[in-house]
C-alpha cells in the first residue's frame, strides 16, 4: 500500500536539511551561487528582508516566475514564503510544486487572528516562533519544521539568540514538571495539551528546530548551532554582504564544524568582503519588528 505526503514525509524532509544552511535568494544566479557554496536549500524571494524593511509597503508572496526560474536552475529543495494566514497564496505555491512553504512574518500578515491550517496541504510548512507555546501552536496547525524568528533583515543576532534560548529553556522547564502539572501549564502557555505532553516526555520539539533572523557571520551560525539550532536560515546576510559567494561558503563551513572553534576561525579568516551593515534592534519601533507578527 502506498500513501503520499504523509506526516513522516513532511517532517522527514525537514530532518534531511539538518546541519545545513538555507539561503534567501532573489534570482537564478544567486540560487546557483548558494547551491555551489553548499546550501541545503534556497528560499526563493522577490526581495530579501533587509530590502522589504527599507522599501516598506505590503510584502506579498513572490512573483511566481521568480520562484519557477529558481526551481528550474537548482536541484536542491526550493522554499517560498506566503503571508501569515494567506492560505490561497499557500495553495498557489503548492500548485507550482515548491518543496517547503514558509508561512512567514517577514511578509505583511494577511490575517490578524488565524494562521493557515497546514495539515490540509501536501507540501510541508515551516513557521517562525519566539517561544515554545508559539512553536507548539504552529506544530498543532501542521508545521513540519519550526524556526526561531530572530529579527529578519536586521543583521543583528540578538533576537535570534533570545528566541532560541527562550525555546530551549522552556523545553527544559517542561521536562522537569510533574505529570499533574501539565494540563494547567498547557492552559497557561496557550499550547495544545498533547504537544505539551510530548515535549515533556521526549525532551525536545516533535519537529526539527532551526534558527533564522539576523545571522550575518560564520560565528553567528556557530552561536546558534551551539545554542541548539539544528540548521540555520540566512536571509539578507549573504546577498547583502560584499562578497556573497565567499560568505555563503564560510557560513556553511562554520555550520558544519560549529563545535570546533579552530574550524570556525578558519571560516572567519577567509573572508575579505564586509558583512551586511546591521541595525540596532532595540531602537526599532514595535510596529517595525517582524518578530511580533504571528498569533
Amino acid at each position: 500500500m502506498s500513501e503520499k505526503s504523509t506526516w513522516t514525509n513532511k517532517v522527514g524532509l525537514a530532518e534531511m536539511l539538518r546541519g545545513g544552511v538555507i539561503m534567501d535568494v532573489t534570482t537564478p544566479e544567486q540560487a546557483k551561487i548558494a547551491e555551489d557554496a553548499g546550501a541545503v536549500s534556497v528560499m526563493a524571494l522577490e526581495r530579501v528582508p533587509a530590502d522589504i524593511r527599507a522599501e516598506g509597503g505590503v510584502a506579498r508572496m513572490a512573483d511566481l516566475t521568480v520562484i519557477e526560474r529558481i526551481m528550474e536552475c537548482v536541484t536542491i529543495p526550493v522554499m517560498a514564503k506566503c503571508r501569515i494566514g494567506h492560505f490561497a497564496e499557500a495553495q498557489v505555491l503548492e500548485a507550482i510544486g515548491v518543496d517547503f512553504i514558509d508561512e512567514s512574518e517577514v511578509l505583511t500578515p494577511a490575517d490578524e487572528k488565524f494562521h493557515v491550517w497546514k495539515h490540509a496541504f501536501k507540501v510541508p510548512f515551516v513557521c517562525g516562533c519566539t517561544n515554545l507555546a508559539e512553536a507548539l501552536r504552529r506544530i498543532g496547525e501542521g508545521a513540519a519544521m519550526i524556526r526561531t524568528k530572530g529579527e529578519a533583515g536586521s543583521g543583528n543576532i540578538v533576537e535570534a539568540t533570545r528566541h532560541m534560548r527562550t525555546v530551549i529553556t522552556e523545553i527544559e522547564r517542561l521536562k522537569g514538571l510533574r505529570q499533574d502539572e501539565l494540563m494547567t501549564t498547557a492552559k497557561e502557555m496557550g499550547a495544545p495539551f498533547d504537544l505539551v505532553q510530548q515535549v515533556h516526555d521526549q525532551g525536545k520539539l516533535p519537529v526539527p528546530n532551526f534558527s533564522a533572523g539576523g545571522i550575518a557571520t560564520p560565528a553567528d551560525a556557530a552561536l546558534m548551532m551551539q545554542l541548539g539550532a539544528e540548521s540555520v536560515f540566512v536571509g539578507s546576510g549573504i546577498f547583502k554582504s560584499e562578497d556573497p559567494a565567499e560568505r555563503a561558503a564560510a557560513i556553511v563551513h562554520a555550520t558544519t564544524y560549529y563545535e570546533d572553534p579552530a574550524e570556525v576561525a578558519k571560516a572567519c579568516r577567509g573572508l575579505k568582503g564586509a558583512a551586511m551593515p546591521g541595525l540596532d534592534v532595540s531602537k526599532l519601533p514595535a510596529e517595525e519588528r517582524m518578530a511580533n507578527r504571528g498569533w
Partner: peptide, 27 residues
C-alpha cells in the same frame, strides 16, 4: 518528482525476512 510526490509504501526486500517493510521515500 518534487516533495509533494514523496510517499510511503510497503515493500518486499530480498534478504530481509518476515514480510514487507514500511518504507519512506523523500524526493
Amino acid at each position: 518528482g518534487r516533495q509533494v510526490e514523496s510517499f510511503e509504501a510497503d515493500l518486499e526486500i530480498a534478504g530481509v525476512p518476515e514480510g514487507p517493510l514500511r518504507t519512506v521515500f523523500i524526493r
